[in-house]
């Protein structure tokens, strides 16, 4: 029964978390903390912090975290499967239609408008991450509080990427190593 509960709970989260990322947080909290009582509020806050520091999306991370807690590795796998299943069906279906009909004027016209919006949405996520790094998750963005070293790391990384077309994963690691090195020298 436990496995079924875990699966069904994350199936719901996967099916109704439109907008992705932090838009899914209230839904996950409502189910995992409120409805099922699997995590305390404190544990949930920790989970959000962990999600910010580790790879993967918040929903998949929550699924793994809760699944592991409740039923070990099988629990984690079942929770993750429930979480991704709705997207598998819907995205594949939409992709199939797109690949078949994209040459139609109607669909091409819609994507003409969607493309620049997607660029903007990618920029929004970049701006969010940059702001949280430069102001260390503070709410008030005063110019004097900006972390200049991180701003420098950002500009340097951007330079390596645009000018030298360096591998993005290498650039990310290098940025982390510079900041960690600065800490060791302090």
């Amino acid at each position: 029964m436990m496995y079924w509960d875990i699966f069904f709970c994350f199936l719901k989260i996967g099916a109704f978390s439109f907008g992705g990322g932090y838009a899914a947080l209230p839904l996950i909290q409502g189910e995992v903390v409120g409805n099922y009582g699997w995590l305390s509020m404190r544990e949930f806050t920790d989970l959000v912090t962990i999600s910010q520091m580790t790879p993967g999306s918040i929903a998949v991370n929550a699924a793994t975290f809760v699944g592991t807690r409740l039923a070990g590795l099988p629990g984690a796998v079942i929770a993750t499967a429930g979480c991704v299943l709705p997207a598998c069906f819907i995205v594949t279906l939409v992709a199939k239609l797109y690949l078949k009909y994209r040459d139609m004027t109607l669909l091409a016209g819609v994507f003409d408008v969607l493309r620049p919006a997607v660029v903007a949405l990618i920029a929004v996520s970049g701006a969010d991450i940059l702001m949280s790094a430069l102001w260390n998750h503070e709410a008030i963005l005063a110019l004097k509080d900006v972390n200049l070293r991180l701003a420098g790391i950002f500009v340097f990384s951007l330079f390596l990427l645009l000018k030298f077309r360096m591998n993005p994963i290498l650039v990310m690691l290098l940025a982390g190593v510079i900041e960690a090195g600065a800490y060791l020298l302090e």
């Binding site: 520091m53 660029v119 990618i122 920029a123 996520s125 970049g126 701006a127 991450i129 940059l130 949280s132 790094a133 430069l134 260390n136 991180l150 701003a151 790391i153 950002f154 500009v155 990384s157 951007l158 990427l161 645009l162 993005p168 650039v171 990310m172 690691l173 290098l174 940025a175 982390g176 190593v177 510079i178 900041e179 960690a180 600065a182 800490y183």
Partner: peptide
Amino acid sequence: RLLLGMQAGVAAVIFAVVW
């Protein structure tokens, strides 16, 4: 601090793609 630095790097990767 390692993760904080990586965050600045991640932002750069996203902005490079947006650019």
